[in-house]
Design a protein around this nucleic acid. Structure first.
Length: 156
DNA sequence: GCCAACGTTGGC
DNA sequence: GCCAACGTTGGC
């Protein structure tokens, strides 16, 4: 089983949106490395840290699981979509998506600043300068550290 | 809104 | 295949 961090702008799609939906497809990925992670490495049951970016307090806000492996991102075929890509076609799809299923929401986000401050999380890609990938692998230890930190705070 | 860091595009 | 120009990301 693998572990991931996936970024979303909450104004576009938030953890609450995923909670409401239960499961949802993760469309709009238009970066080859992020696509390759989904296409080649994500399996059903993989666990995901759900991260809110471009918001007042960026950070991990909850968890999800991968519930369907990579399949063509249909928004690339839709000229009306902001994610339209004329180079992608149903015959030869360039972009992929996976489905995520909601797992949990943190009472308070584990903020980017907090991640920066924790020695155990010093190698997380999300705090590496210039790292903008919207899908990033995390280690099991990092995943569990984030989760424990969130749970410990909720227990107080 | 600024801007650093990157990724992509396209002319050559 | 180089690389300048351009677009995007995302924290601040």
């Amino acid at each position: 089983m693998k572990y991931w961090l996936m970024k979303s702008e909450p104004s576009a799609f938030s953890i609450d949106d995923l909670k409401k939906a239960g499961s949802e497809h993760w469309d709009g990925i238009r970066n080859y490395q992020a696509r390759n992670y989904m296409r080649d490495d994500m399996k059903v049951g993989d666990r995901v840290l759900f991260y809110h970016s471009s918001t007042e307090v960026p950070g991990v806000v909850g968890t999800a699981t991968v519930s369907r492996e990579a399949y063509p991102d249909h928004t690339a075929f839709d000229p009306e979509s902001r994610y339209f890509d004329p180079k992608s076609s149903p015959d030869n799809p360039r972009w992929m998506m996976v489905d995520l299923t909601y797992e949990s929401s943190f009472g308070q986000p584990v903020t980017l600043a907090e991640i920066r401050g924790m020695p155990k999380l010093k190698d997380m890609l999300v705090i590496r300068k210039g790292q903008r990938l919207s899908i990033q692998p995390v280690t099991k230890a990092e995943f569990e550290t984030v989760l424990k930190f969130a749970r410990a705070r909720e227990a107080r």
